[in-house]
Each structure stands twice: as structure tokens, then as C-alpha cells.
Computed example of a mutant assay.
Amino acid sequence: MNVLLLIVGCVMDMVSAIVILAPLLVSLGRVYGIDPVHLGIIMIINLEIGLLTPPLGINLIVAMSAFRENFSSIARGVLPFVGLMLVGLLIVSFVPALSLGLQ
């Protein structure tokens, strides 16, 4: 599911992806016993990482025009942050008690 959401985040804006995928993933999450709030957190993190990665990288294009830099320098500058977000995504995805505050 994480890989699918990362790919969707790369090519689609967040609101459209949520409107299209949320009903499908919530029903799938119910089958596998995933809390809907936890699933929503995972979706938002995945889609945001997708917005920061090429080929489309909508947030990168906005930053490119705001800072008047070329696409490659913006993409290189954002790589450490994408790495940290991926680590956070792995923690949230595989340790649900931490993200929901459960014991």
C-alpha cells in the first residue's frame, strides 16, 4: 500500500488522490483490521512524500518558481528531508502504537 500511495503521490495532487483512494483503502483496511485514523495518517505521509519526488513533484515545481532555482538543485536540496520522511513513514506504518498513542 505504501508503494502504491507513493506512486500516486508522484503523479497526482493530494486532494484528488484522497477522494479517489480513501474509500477503497478504508474498506480494504477494515478487512485487515487497520484503524481508519492510522490509515489516514499513512495516506497523508505517503502522498506528501510523493509530492516532493520527481517526475512531477508539484511541490518542487512551486519551490522552483518561488526561489528561481532550477529543478535539479531544488530536488537535490530536498533529498535529505525525503529520506527523513521515509524513515518516519516506516515507523508510522509498522509501529502503529507510536502513531496513535496506544499502549
Rank of each mutant, 00 (worst) to 15 (best):
V11S: 14
M12P: 01
D13C: 08
D13Q: 06
M14W: 04
M14F: 06
V15A: 12
V15C: 08
S16Q: 10
A17H: 14
I18D: 08
I18L: 14
V19N: 07
I20V: 10
I20R: 00
I20D: 01
A22D: 08
A22M: 14
L24C: 01
L24Q: 01
L25G: 10
S27A: 10
L28T: 15
L28F: 15
G29N: 09
R30I: 14
Y32G: 00
G33M: 07
G33I: 03
P36M: 08
P36N: 11
V37A: 07
H38F: 09
H38T: 10
G40N: 10
G40L: 09
I41L: 14
I42H: 05
M43W: 12
I44P: 01
I44C: 06
I45R: 09
N46V: 11
N46C: 13
N46W: 08
E48M: 13
E48G: 12
I49E: 02
G50A: 00
L51D: 06
L52F: 06
T53W: 00
T53N: 03
P54I: 00
G57V: 08
L60E: 03
L60Y: 06
M64Y: 07
M64T: 12
S65V: 13
A66D: 11
R68S: 13
N70V: 09
I74C: 08
A75W: 02
A75Q: 01
R76W: 14
R76I: 13
G77I: 04
L79M: 11
L79A: 09
L79I: 08
P80M: 07
P80C: 05
F81K: 12
L84C: 01
L84I: 05
